[in-house]
Computed example of a mutant assay.
Amino acid sequence: MRLRNVSKRYGRRREVLADVDLQVAAGELLALVGANGSGKSTVLKLMVGLSRPTSGTVRRNAQVVSYVPDVFASHDRLSASAYLRHMGRIRGLSSHAARKRSDELLDRLALAGGADTPMRKLSKGNAQKVALAQALLEPPQLLVLDEPWAGLDAIAHGTLRELLTETANQGAAVAFTEHSDDTVKSTATRVCELRNGKLVSGTTATLTEITLTSGPDLDWSQQPDVLEVRRNDDGVTLILPTGSHDAALLTALTHGCSVTSVRRVQ
């Protein structure tokens, strides 16, 4: 997914974000760092569509998006297991699949008291484990987490790092915020810093533009790593992360497309 020249303003107040250009590629673990109030949570909400930019564009090439907010409002009446089964059914899983997956995740995260513990009795850390489990019930293509390690015990701390790495290795784009330098260094594959609403380091990765002509009318938006598709009378132009464009070239040639040009655009 990509934010291109994104700014965000609430009412007449100063801009929360100003001209942010940021990309998260498939398989990447992006850490957003910065002081409180720097705009990190706003960026995450823009990524998942919970907020809209005042200016600029947000493009998501992901059908399954999961989000873990900084504050998880747990349900008073349901148990952790019942809540996750309910969320699994909403996501299209069968009751059996939802229960199996939720039990697996809660076991790995070591939920205190077990899966049948009522949500109202969960501590902040254990409620966070349920929030993490619901985000991973179905393999996401884009996973966005706001301070996901907050309140977790030492065992779950390491387990979460493993789960995020596994998710990225399965082809998802993962973005998270975190204050701990050690956690960021041990988890992230790229780090971006926000300061007063502006991206001051770790700017967007280099992109490659591929121009194609002829061949079948493929749905390029569903191809791995394709961030943007521009169609015209002569063919199609694809925008992909540099280093991740070989698969698109192979697909194009396999389907009889002609490659007009391949060039870096930034």
Rank of each mutant, 00 (worst) to 15 (best):
G171D: 07
E166F: 05
A175P: 04
R195Q: 01
T165M: 15
R190G: 05
Q170E: 15
L194S: 04
G197S: 07
T187L: 00
V174E: 13
A154N: 07
H179G: 03
R195G: 00
H157M: 05
G171M: 06
N169Y: 11
P148E: 11
K198E: 08
G171C: 05
L199P: 03
L164H: 01
P148I: 08
G151F: 07
G158D: 08
W149R: 03
T159A: 12
A168N: 03
A150I: 00
T189P: 03
R195L: 04
K198C: 07
D181W: 15
L194D: 05
I155N: 13
E162R: 15
L194K: 01
E178D: 13
A173W: 14
V191D: 04
R161D: 12
I155E: 12
A156E: 05
T183N: 14
L164W: 03
S186L: 14
F176G: 00
D182H: 06
T159M: 08
L160D: 08
S186I: 08
E162I: 09
D182Q: 05
A150H: 02
A156C: 02
S180M: 12
D181T: 12
T183Q: 14
H157W: 10
A150F: 01
E162W: 09
E193W: 04
N169S: 15
T183M: 14
S201Q: 15
L194Q: 02
L194E: 01
L163M: 14
R195K: 05
E166H: 00
L152P: 02
L163W: 07
L194C: 00
S180Q: 13
V191S: 01
E147C: 02
S180D: 15
R161F: 10
A168E: 02
T189S: 06
I155F: 13
E147H: 04
E166L: 08
P148G: 11
E166W: 01
L199M: 11
A154L: 13
S180F: 13
A168V: 04
F176Y: 03
E166S: 03
A154P: 06
E178W: 04
L163G: 05
W149F: 15
T187I: 05
A168S: 00
V174L: 14
A156L: 07
H157R: 09
D153Y: 10
G158A: 07
G151E: 08
L163K: 11
A175C: 13
T177G: 01
D182M: 02
E193V: 06
D181C: 11
T159C: 10
E166Q: 01
L199Y: 02
D181L: 15
G151C: 09
T189E: 03
T177V: 10
D182I: 05
A173R: 11
L194M: 01
R195I: 03
S180K: 14
L164V: 00
A188K: 00
E193I: 09
T167M: 07
A173T: 13
E178P: 06
S201G: 10
T159W: 10
F176S: 02
A154V: 14
D153P: 06
A168R: 02
W149D: 04
